[in-house]
Write a protein that binds this DNA or RNA. Structure first.
Lengths: 255, 255
DNA sequence: AAAATCAATCAAAGGATTTCAAAATAATTC
DNA sequence: GAATTATTTTGAAATCCTTTGATTGATTTT
């Protein structure tokens, strides 16, 4: 059987069942485990499915709750470690900008500083913040369906009313030559503006973003301080300028 | 069974029953207690459910918001009936303003019109709307801790950028002489502005608000159309002017 | 205080990667 | 057009990593 036939059958099976076990594919296709694995690898590379432990699953699930990001338990732990360290950078009486996104969301439970004022473009963030009795301003604008972030011209306009001691920004790619990048131009514009309005900018990001490059540039590497869970691999990632990097210790995260 | 299948089943069970016992999941999934615990742990980490002693429960924003007020079964039914009727007033291609509040929140699942654009000052509303793939603009401003509504000068300023076919507004008091009233002056100002910017204004309110008077006046009775679950008692409530009132039929609400 | 539930730990099973040699296919040469 | 060589694809084995279920002792609930 040709490789193409196999892969087509895999996709058809997935279209029907939404998930499929590796063993099932092996017996269905009369191919060796290795071959099927390689097929899955290739299809994942083409973004046609998602590999999971023991098999593969459709990217878009009927239940779209699960598909937002492939987040293993480990990843969640990492994010929490980063979030916890980032939260300690907020000092009493600070005015901070909190970018929308999961890592910045995780920061909120760890905020201990008093009399803090937060501006955010993430409605979920606002929700958590007011529960913690933290003064919170939400930016206005269009809600993006995928990331649930507020973006657009209205957001850009309303953020101008503020000045920040510190801005915490999430990104999708960190690269020495391309700087910080993210897929959506509107989001990039807002992040950039937040950075311009802040005295200090922290990039909060798990280490998987190193050497990734996304569509839109936000600003250069040296313009912000990185908070991450792991030092970047120095082979593919050469920090020539004096970019500051804080590394979170995952072991000490309890909550 | 793959981990993902298990977790999806857990979420589906929760969606139906709202709570689920650990033991029930163990026997349903044919997995060990440890495994189910780990699944719950992970799903909680991703903010997809809340773990409680003995099992897990749904973390619906709706649930949280509702239990502030008395949410007896009757009251919920009443609100849903009002919300359902109100939602039918939204027509294809409308631009509507949705006030923050529980009744307007309940409207969202009942919206069937196509190509609707919604502006709201309730972050929770925005969340639900984008899930329904409805275009949604969130007003900027300070988040009020009690009602989770966005208010203040920034909100007043950013709402001016819009014009509405229809505005749906919640109130705390409805009285023939005092008109519509609400406790917070900032919220009142925003509701008034929304009304001014709209061609038609509906007041969505359960019947308990009749003859109640709250601190701040929003506008006069005749300026809007009331949607409620029950006609006001005519002794204490004399509708002298030609105020329009729609009364919802609670019997026919199923969902 | 007793019963139930939970968190932490650990060994075993199952799954994933890597590596290497054997087939199969394609390309080249005579 | 056959023989030979190069390239790609495949399968099997060794090693590494993840997931799982059982057990323990600590917490919580009644």
């Amino acid at each position: 059987m040709l490789a193409e036939e196999r892969q087509l059958m895999i996709l058809k099976t997935l279209a029907v069942d939404h998930v499929v076990k590796l063993k099932a594919l092996v017996s269905m296709l009369n191919a060796s485990e290795s071959t099927v694995r390689r097929d899955l690898q290739e299809l994942e590379g083409r973004h046609l499915l998602r590999r999971v432990h023991g098999g593969a699953s459709l990217l878009r699930k009927l239940n779209d709750e699960l598909d937002m990001e492939t987040k293993t338990f480990k990843n969640v732990q990492k994010k929490k470690a980063v979030a916890r360290l980032a939260a300690t950078k907020i000092k009493d009486n600070d005015c901070v900008f909190l970018d929308a996104g999961t890592t910045t969301l995780e920061m909120i439970p760890f905020i201990t500083a008093k009399n803090v004022t937060v501006v955010t473009n993430g409605p979920a963030h606002g929700d958590l913040l007011v529960r913690k009795k933290i003064i919170c301003y939400l930016l206005g604008g269009q809600m993006k369906s995928t990331t649930k972030a507020v973006i657009g011209s209205l957001a850009l306009q309303s953020i101008n009313l503020f000045r920040f001691d510190t801005a915490f920004i999430g990104v999708n790619g960190i690269d020495p030559s391309m700087g910080y990048t993210t897929p959506d131009p509107e989001e990039a514009a807002l992040k950039r503006r937040a950075h311009d309005l802040a005295q200090r900018t922290y990039i909060v990001s798990d280490s998987s973003k190193f050497s990734e490059i996304s569509f839109c540039k936000i600003f250069d590497l040296g313009e912000a301080i990185i908070i991450t869970d792991h030092l970047p691999d120095l082979d593919g990632f050469k920090v020539t300028d004096k970019t500051e990097i804080y590394v979170a210790d995952q072991e000490t995260v309890d909550r």
